[in-house]
């Protein structure tokens, strides 16, 4: 074996196999965290933009809600009544209340 071969072998030494999988897992965990934070930042930015848009058009929204609210009131009342019956009349509710 030549000195060059020995030198190459020494310089080409790599970390032990034992830690390789742990290292890859650690990197991927850091990548996932990065992806999550990026998504969170994008969603926060989207929410801010949406809030600004809604704030800007709030006078028009107010007028619209005021115009359609009277006609929707009976429907909403009916829906609330149905929801109340479902919630109180369901067998799960009786079971949780230990009545049934």
């Amino acid at each position: 074996m030549t000195l060059d071969d020995q030198l190459s072998a020494f310089l080409g030494e790599e970390p032990q196999q034992g830690r390789a999988e742990v290292f890859t897992a650690e990197v991927m965990k850091a990548v996932e965290r990065r992806v999550f934070l990026d998504r969170l930042a994008a969603m926060a930015a989207g929410a801010v933009v949406l809030a600004l848009v809604l704030w800007a058009v709030s006078p028009a929204l107010n007028l619209m809600v005021r115009a359609i609210a009277p006609s929707l009131a009976p429907v909403c009342g009916g829906l609330v009544f149905v929801a109340a019956i479902i919630m109180t009349g369901g067998p799960q509710v009786w079971r949780r209340l230990s009545i049934g």
Partner: peptide, 22 residues
Amino acid sequence: SQAAFARLVAIHEKPLRGFLRK
């Protein structure tokens, strides 16, 4: 694809760590 990137990490991590260590 995080799976593809994990493959890239697995391929290059040892030479890279060896290089930095040396």
